[in-house]
Structure formats: structure tokens, C-alpha cells
Design a protein around this nucleic acid. Structure first.
Length: 152
DNA sequence: GCCAACGTTGGC
DNA sequence: GCCAACGTTGGC
């Protein structure tokens, strides 16, 4: 069992959107970074806990709790010329980009960055490190517990 | 809109 | 395989 923080732009898929989706489940399309892809491919397991994070918006922060509900499989948007995530170099026989299905479990109060920074147990969170841009990052058991406590 | 930080690209 | 140039991310 492992924990993750996954960034989503709420303009595209917010925690509300995910909760409103069939089975509260969304395919995590659009990851175009090899490190993030490799996390999904190599380390994510069904049942892993996910902090659903809103990024690139007016109020960035943790907005909900979710879980991984599938293994990694090819992201169909890489083959779709009409998609903003289209990758002309990706081949059907040899997909470059993968995704997992994520099930939203609940919306939480918004845990803003400033609040995360203020918490000693979260000072090493990858998301808070300077220059961090990774859209999927591992979360330690201690960080997960601290976040759950803040939300309790 | 700014800009620091980082990843990717491509010429050599 | 180096590395400068470029594009993107994402908080502010």
C-alpha cells in the first residue's frame, strides 16, 4: 500500500467532476512526463491512496481523497489528433503514455499550500519542494497520516 | 502576466 | 553524449 498526490487542474477535472462521474471514477489522462508515467507503470497499485490536488487555479491545494482503481494502461488521448494531449510520435503497437483510473472517495475542505507548509510533518513533501513540477508524486505514510489528521 | 525551475529537443 | 535553446509548469 502506497500513497500519492495527483495534480489536476480543476478547470479540466475538479474533485466535484470526479465525484459526479460514473462510479466516481475518472481516467487520469494527459500525463506527459516520463517520471510521472513510470510511477503509474511501476509503483502504483490498485487500492493506493491518493490526495486529489487542485493546481494551476486561484486556490491551489488538496481538495479531496481518492484511490487508484486500475493498473496502468495506454492513454487513448495520445492517439487522438483532436486531443490537446495528442502525441504524433506515439504508436498503437508501442504506446508511450499510460494512465490509471482514479476513484474519488470524498471532497474535503481545501488544504491550501500555506497550511501544508505550516505543518512540520509535511515539510518534506515533494509537492512543497522548490521548483517541483511533477504531477504525480509519492506521499509517505507520515505525510498521509498528517494530512488525514488535518482533515479530521 | 511574471518568472524560476525544470524537462525536452536537436545540432554538433 | 554534450549543452544551449526552447517550451512548459505552476505559484504568486
Amino acid at each position: 500500500m502506497q500513497y500519492w498526490l495527483m495534480k489536476s487542474e480543476p478547470d479540466e477535472v475538479s474533485i466535484d467532476d470526479a465525484l459526479a462521474a460514473p462510479a466516481s471514477t475518472v481516467a487520469w489522462t494527459g500525463v506527459r512526463n516520463y517520471q510521472a508515467r513510470n510511477f503509474m507503470r511501476d509503483r502504483m497499485k490498485v487500492g493506493d491512496g491518493v490526495l486529489f490536488y487542485h493546481s494551476s487555479c486561484a486556490e491551489p491545494g488538496i481538495a479531496g481523497i481518492a484511490e487508484v482503481v486500475s493498473g496502468a494502461y495506454p492513454d487513448p488521448t495520445q492517439f487522438d489528433p483532436a486531443s490537446p494531449y495528442y502525441d504524433p510520435k506515439a504508436k498503437q503497437e508501442e504506446p508511450r503514455w499510460l494512465l490509471v483510473d482514479v476513484r474519488a472517495m470524498r471532497k474535503t475542505r481545501l488544504l491550501k499550500i500555506a497550511e501544508l507548509r505550516a505543518h512540520p510533518a509535511l515539510s518534506d513533501m515533494v509537492i512543497l519542494r522548490k521548483g517541483n513540477r511533477l504531477s504525480i508524486t509519492p506521499v509517505t505514510q507520515g505525510e498521509w497520516d498528517a494530512v488525514r489528521e488535518l482533515l479530521a
